[in-house]
Nucleic acid binder design. Structure first.
Lengths: 246, 246
DNA sequence: CGACTACTTGAAATATTTCAAAGTGAGTGG
DNA sequence: CCACTCACTTTGAAATATTTCAAGTAGTCG
């Protein structure tokens, strides 16, 4: 595990991949030390994004994918009638923008839910490097495959109709992603609004709100604004797996 | 456009990529003539699959991706309580199995909805070849990106709650995929059962059935068993885009 | 501190699910 | 080749969950 220097000025602009604390879960996982130097050269590091700011917009030409360095982002598309449909939330270490590879245009927009920072990875350079470094090519295939799996998990979530199940699964999913980052999976902050959650899960805001209070009455969770505490993970798990045909 | 020889014995075992009629929409689109020969060498062509048979099962080790040569397939996972959740339908020329790249194990099972044939493409060989042929690498990235987009379209479908909208979108989507294959987008066969459609769209079978008859009463479509005829594409489009907040 | 947005809560309206049953079709075996 | 069975589809009526509409409360940001 590489030493992670703490920067006295809070700036992330000068951190290299080798020094980045996300090193073990981000792209670099795939490459050796010298290769990492090459990767570092093509990456534009630590661009800060203010809350509400966009990284890219649907329809724009596709040039790069982005690794979340810190903060939280959401991706979404606009339906034909102008409604927003959220397609994903992205935490530190996750890669977004891969939807644009197919048509060479982004099909989603990406927006920061809080002050964040992203590393921009020019895709053409990544392709060139991938052809030279087999493990990087493999890793990038894996990242895309992971995105496919994540989308399919959401599909399963949306297909199980009861609101309880969707929200229980959602909370557990966020929890385990936090744990993978070495953070608490029992106590974390929902950086997205209730309305974002509803949109993402195909539920009305009011349903989200009501389900949260119901969960609280059952002592499954405790919420305080955007903070959530999972009190009974097993209980949530039971709900999220509730059998419909006993 | 290459000449597509008709095989007098109906066998697909001897057809090469160069001769395959799906040539313009399948993997070969990315490569030159000599490169196609290399691609042809690694592909195990035209394995026939009986109706109901599996190509791969969830949990199995991942070795290959598969191109549909003919027929229709579905992919699905089993939820924790043993319920099937369909994640996709695949028509001729489409590639499946990419979900397994991430963990090196398939997360879905794939099953034939009718007698079908698939070309098996060993993934390691494809990776090697991709590193050598930049346009192939690019194309495979694009294929994965397309899968991501398809999943996200389904997410949008599932998030728009009314059954009419889901089913209208579903029928239009299938239609345009048929058109891309040079087949009629107005008249085609639903190779999946009503129950499969319901499962895929997050609806009860009964709701699917009722919605079909309602569409029929409105002269939007005409069904006869598994055959569908789209009578009023514009009408379906209007329903699929129905604004919820006027 | 005030305006604005986000969140919560209640009650009525609505759509879908569930339960029940009949009709249809395909495949099998006599 | 026909009859039978099993699975799939359709239809109806009641039950249920979520949405919608409405209003009040809390939080946030300038």
């Amino acid at each position: 595990m590489p030493k992670t220097p703490t920067c006295p000025h809070g700036s992330t602009m000068t951190v290299t991949c080798s020094d980045c604390s996300l090193n073990p879960i981000c792209l670099p996982i795939a490459v050796s030390k010298d290769e990492l130097i090459q990767l570092d050269e093509i990456i534009k590091r630590g661009r800060p994004i203010k809350k509400g700011e966009h990284i890219f917009n649907a329809g724009e030409g596709f040039r790069s994918v982005y690794a979340v360095r810190s903060g939280t982002l959401k991706t979404y598309t606009l339906t034909e009638n102008g409604e927003e449909q959220i397609t994903g939330f992205y935490l530190a270490g996750e890669i977004l923008g891969m939807d644009g590879i197919n048509t060479n245009h982004h099909s989603n927009s990406a927006k920061a839910l809080e002050a964040s920072a992203v590393c921009e990875i020019p895709f053409e350079r990544l392709e060139e490097l991938s052809a030279k470094i087999p493990s990087l090519q493999r890793h990038f295939f894996q990242l895309m495959s992971r995105e496919i799996q994540a989308d399919q998990q959401l599909i399963m979530l949306l297909s199980k109709k009861p609101a309880d199940e969707r929200i229980a699964s959602f909370l557990l999913n966020l929890g385990s992603r936090h744990e993978n980052r070495g953070l608490s999976g029992e106590r974390y902050r929902l950086n997205m609004s209730r309305s974002d959650i509803g949109n993402y899960l195909g539920l009305a805001v009011e349903t989200v709100s009501r389900t949260f209070t119901r969960f609280q009455q059952k002592s499954l969770i405790k919420t305080e604004g955007k903070e959530v505490e999972v009190l009974d993970k097993e209980g949530l798990r039971t709900i999220s797996n509730k059998a419909r045909t006993p």
